[in-house]
Simulated assay, not measured.
Amino acid sequence: MAAEGVAIPGILTTGARSPVGPPVWESINVDQLEDRVNASGLDRLANTAYWTNLSSYFGHGGKLLFYHGVSDPWFSANDTVNYYERMAAESGGMESVRETSSRAFLVPGMGHCSSGATLDHFDLLSAVVNWVEDGKAPDAVVATGPAFPGRSRPLCAYPQHAQYKGQGDPESAGSFECK
Rank of each mutant, 00 (worst) to 15 (best):
M1S: 14
A3L: 13
E4Q: 13
I8C: 01
P9E: 11
I11K: 01
I11M: 12
L12M: 06
G15I: 07
A16S: 13
S18I: 01
S18Y: 02
P22V: 12
P23I: 01
W25T: 06
V30E: 11
D31W: 02
D31Q: 13
Q32M: 04
Q32H: 07
L33G: 12
D35T: 10
D35M: 06
R36K: 11
V37C: 03
V37R: 14
A39K: 13
S40F: 07
S40P: 04
L42P: 00
R44D: 00
L45K: 12
A46P: 00
N47Q: 11
A49K: 11
A49W: 15
Y50R: 01
Y50E: 05
W51P: 00
T52H: 07
N53G: 02
L54H: 03
Y57D: 00
Y57N: 01
F58W: 05
G61F: 06
G61E: 04
F66L: 12
F66V: 04
Y67I: 01
Y67S: 12
G69W: 03
G69T: 02
V70M: 12
V70L: 10
D72M: 03
D72S: 06
W74F: 10
F75T: 10
D79F: 04
D79K: 03
T80D: 14
N82D: 13
E90N: 14
S91T: 03
G92W: 09
G92M: 05
G92T: 04
G92Y: 08
M94A: 14
M94F: 14
S96E: 06
V97K: 03
S102Y: 08
V107L: 05
G109S: 07
M110C: 04
M110I: 07
C113W: 04
S114E: 06
S115F: 12
A117I: 01
L119Y: 03
L119D: 08
D120L: 05
H121F: 08
F122V: 06
F122D: 02
F122A: 06
D123M: 04
D123F: 08
D123K: 07
A127H: 07
A127R: 09
A127W: 09
V129P: 00
N130D: 15
N130P: 01
W131C: 07
V132E: 12
E133C: 02
D134R: 15
K136C: 00
K136A: 13
A137P: 11
D139K: 13
D139R: 14
V141F: 09
V141M: 04
A143Y: 03
G145M: 05
A147S: 15
F148P: 02
P149R: 04
S152G: 11
R153L: 15
A157S: 15
Y158T: 04
Y158V: 01
Q160L: 11
H161Y: 13
H161R: 15
Q163W: 03
Q163M: 09
K165Y: 00
Q167H: 13
G168A: 08
A173I: 05
A173E: 04
G174M: 02
G174D: 15
S175E: 05
